[in-house]
Design a protein around this nucleic acid. Sequence first.
DNA 1: CGACTGCTTGAGTCTGCTCAATAAAGGTGG
DNA 2: CCACCTTTATTGAGCAGACTCAAGCAGTCG
Lengths: 242, 242
Amino acid sequence: MRAAATNRAFDRVGTGGPDATFDRLDTVGAIKHLDPHESLVLEGDGADRLHRVLSGTIAGYKATADGRRQILAFFYPGDLVGLTVGERYAYSAEAVDHASVRSVPQARLRELTAAAPAMRDGLLEALCREVSAAQERLLWLGRKTARERLAGFLLECDSRIGKRNRDGQHTVPLPMSQLEIGDYLGLASETVSRTLAELVRDGTVEIVRPFSGVIIWDRRRLERAADEGGPSPYPAPLFSGS
Amino acid sequence: MRAAATNRAFDRVGTGGPDATFDRLDTVGAIKHLDPHESLVLEGDGADRLHRVLSGTIAGYKATADGRRQILAFFYPGDLVGLTVGERYAYSAEAVDHASVRSVPQARLRELTAAAPAMRDGLLEALCREVSAAQERLLWLGRKTARERLAGFLLECDSRIGKRNRDGQHTVPLPMSQLEIGDYLGLASETVSRTLAELVRDGTVEIVRPFSGVIIWDRRRLERAADEGGPSPYPAPLFSGS
DNA sequence: CGACTGCTTGAGTCTGCTCAATAAAGGTGG
DNA sequence: CCACCTTTATTGAGCAGACTCAAGCAGTCG
């Protein structure tokens, strides 16, 4: 049972997605392996396939003519890449590290959704979560400081792929480079480095060397940093009045 | 036939949405009138209704504890506000000007979607467009200059609610204040004012006084401003090589 | 005809960017 | 296994785009 073995790779995905809903996708389509930075889909290309991440990390992004890049999402095992109603991909996607995906032809997908209403509901829900995630990010990029964005990012990564370690702390793997984190947060890579250094000086987090993740030492402070920005002025208001 | 009369209000919506798909929504739910700045839904509240804009403009937004605000979308007649799979609204929404909506209870909506597959497909498509719009905006907020964002915004407004006037130019109504435009583009209202003044100095657009919209005098230049930023260095590369 | 709200414009500041130099990792071939 | 080369991270110096604060103006509404 190869499918079952493959599935185990994302049993641990924590967002509580309707992952099980898409299990039957595992019976169709071809598996593709990607090297770091290898392209999976390109914005504007015909959206002939839907991709489900099996292992590794994929970055979805948009780019401007002059090379600026905005990463829209990091996709982890269980996530769907290239979901669209139109006939063209709305964004490009490439592997962050060594990754593998199962690519399901649109035609097969249509058959499956026609047969299984639960599948269609699953797609609706996945799409809904995608909207919600993108909108949350709009607040970050439009209105938050570098410190707030990075803190929010680390917490987001923790909830998706973080694990509690033997010391009771959470270790958050960061498979992407600081440049990619910057492209996700709308920051220069230098700013990511500096801001991360600040969180380390605080004692909020520790960097796993060589750079491959962080350990969260003071979650409370990290949460405060995520929606206040300041190093730690006064306890969070917690929506008391007004 | 009051429903038909109400419908006419958004016959002109230009995004080619599946508006007709939702016509049967017009047979259920109550019509609500909203004054400027009147709240329609609040983030976190129980998402017991889906709202369809009949007239006017609605702003969907998220806010931070300390009052910073990011407008996620402006909703025009025909648009759906409050679409979510979860049981809580993911964002707040309030009227920009005098507006009216039809509010359909979730229960009725479920009945309707159960009965009409086309309705469900319509929701899927609407959601998909919402993702796409949000992701495009991520690129703006993360990687574009004030000039690029504003130019892009004016073009977006034009394509949604702009009209060709007698002189052959496009007139774009802007029902929202410059503060609201700023909250949409992640800019201070002063920056909106200044940047708009720059486009006026260029001869790219003209402001309709009192401030209520713009006339686009040089669309080519506006398009260049939207994806280059610079006042007008050299003709757009148009993706020639690489 | 005032009072309010929203727009405009100026002056100064600041966050985050660019450019640049150095250090640390990772990969490759001898 | 080591020397070499490339890529990525760190840190500093200076700059700039956009923000804040503030004053003045205009249009609207009671």
